[in-house]
Design a protein around this nucleic acid. Structure first.
Lengths: 338, 338
DNA sequence: TTGAAAGCGCTAACAG
DNA sequence: CTGTTAGCGCTTTCAA
């Protein structure tokens, strides 16, 4: 059943072709100075033996690997969206993609381990790496890295971030434009800069419109549905509930619907809900989200990284994406109750 | 911005700690026979220098890498579902995960390249590999592999497959039980064994119930929404349209709804639709699918692979999953039109 | 145009 | 308990 044939090495190929390993290595790397008949012979042997050069050995000697690494914390919808964009960019490039995920939960998300993963990839088999949602502010690495949506406020490396503050401001302008005055907010993780900026956008949006900030309407949160659900209920059950709710991410917005459904509140008429981010799960429920947000971050990150690998300069070191929330989506009132 | 520090090697650590490389290697690999103060000193140096062992070099010498490889063709919903299950299993194991995707479209899906990717991972940095939707019937590899949903009918290696035939039979029994007699079918790619078996289940399901097979109701397909859409329209526009439609995958079932909507046919009352597979996109539209199908395949595949890596024997070499379509989901008539 | 030999960073005997 | 040594499979001088 399982093929326990010992993997074929460059030595085997050399012997079978009656040449030295260095000659095989030459044809492998497309060097020109090899007699064309020798070349043919070697190619045939390679094909017959099903030889593939050992990644580890090759990476150790040469420096071009045609491989981009990606470090993600998990396979949750958030990461998967980014992955899609990364994949799209990879398909347009010459590189292949190697995604690294840790199994063990206690290893996730610590600065030390992020450094570890980056080293693991970048100092050996990879030409550069993308790191998603990292907390580290600095990396020691041979090859370039680009961070997507880093937690740190002032990362010390190139990164792609959404325009969280502007996006949030636009959401507020939109909701206020609809006539809403009591707008609830469900926060994201307060240790993460994107969440902080979204909250700031909420506050400043109100201030700009000359509306007093009502701290009771600002709920904590951590980007999870579970927590958001709890606070959504609180908001909806207030004596004087908000007429609109803005959540720091779309997962949380889902919870608002869930809570509303259980409380028999009809969302389309009573509350406007807008969630940040763009997870397909949310989109499929008809949630208003920032169109293509995460996917595009992934896409752009690869393009930046490829530039760095090729030693081209970046237009801007920190690429801030426009969320274009209001322009791209209709921010319409929301939606069926599943 | 970018940290161009040369990566620190085991040599640097050894020198800084005033010991030999082998001693460093020993503490790195948790060998016991090292004086505890030496150990401490080395650990401190490692921490200070931010040393991470070179994956490539390490893989080349030792044989335990604690890394499982996964080869997938793309990041489409189908693959992503499997990924989720794989990730879940990885989290319960000691292994980390390395996912390999090739960028270039022309490289995808050929037997030669599948072998290439497997070699790339398995003969160097990985303890074993999962290969998704492979066409190859055999692999030359040092380390074990497990295939998820292979295209080949009789793969020469351990694999996880859905019970496509039984599942399809159950769908047919269910639909016939509802009183349907004219049941349409939209096929999957005819070169793929799972599609063939689903079609066979459709046919045999009818035969078993003593219903004549009407070839007009059997449409071709290729698992894509575009093609399915075309044939869904054909089915729905027949003079005597089917009262139910069974599609070889859930993506195709989505197309039936799309077509129905455009033709102003109300699905819930007029047609029952059941799609094979389990893509969350479909689930969110309320489509009846085989619950947890793909996710579970991914999950099981890792468990099998880990057993193989540890030289334990598999219960069955080919693990056929029960789809449990009828039991797990209600196969209820379907659903809102977005 | 080809081969021999050095060495990438690491681990695993083998000595001490 | 620790250091010395020999490669893993490959690429890359340097000679021939």
């Amino acid at each position: 059943m399982r093929n326990k044939k010992r993997a074929v090495t460059i030595q085997n190929v050399a012997k079978a072709a009656g040449v030295s390993v260095s000659t095989v290595s030459r044809v492998l790397n497309g060097k020109v100075d090899v007699a064309s008949d020798t070349q043919d012979r070697i190619q045939k042997v390679i094909a017959k033996l099903g030889y593939t050069s050992n990644l580890a050995a090759r990476s150790m000697r040469s420096h071009k690997k045609n491989l981009i690494g990606l470090v993600i914390p998990d396979m949750m919808p958030y990461s998967v969206e980014i992955l899609k964009g990364v994949n799209r960019a990879i398909e347009e490039s010459d590189f292949d993609l190697l995604i690294y995920t840790t199994g063990s939960a206690q290893k996730k998300g610590t600065v030390l381990h992020e450094q570890h993963y980056v080293s693991l990839l970048n100092n050996s088999i990879t030409d550069g790496a993308i790191i998603v949602a990292s907390s580290a502010t600095e990396f020691i690495t041979d090859a370039p890295i680009v961070a997507v949506d880093p937690h740190a406020v002032n990362p010390n490396y190139p990164s792609v971030q959404g325009m969280n503050y502007q996006g949030a401001m636009e959401v507020m302008e939109y909701l206020i434009g609809l006539g809403h005055r009591r707008i609830g907010f469900i926060s994201g993780r307060s240790d993460i800069s994107s969440a902080q900026r979204r909250l700031k956008g909420y506050r400043d949006g109100l201030m700009k419109a000359g509306i007093d900030i009502n701290e009771e309407l600002i709920m904590p949160g951590d980007f999870t549905q579970k927590t958001a659900y709890k606070y959504a209920r609180e908001l909806l059950q207030m004596d004087n509930p908000p007429t609109a709710i803005f959540t720091a991410n779309d997962q949380s917005a889902l919870s608002v619907f869930q809570a509303a459904e259980e409380l028999k509140i009809r969302i389309p008429d009573d509350v406007s809900v807008v969630g940040f981010d763009n997870i397909s799960e949310a989109r499929h429920l008809g949630l208003t989200t920032v169109d293509q947000f995460l996917e595009e971050m992934g896409y752009i990150s690869i393009q930046m990284l490829v530039k760095l690998i090729n030693n081209e300069s970046l237009d801007e070191e920190v690429h801030e994406m426009r969320t274009k929330l209001v322009e791209r989506t209709s921010c319409r009132k929301l939606i069926q109750t599943a």
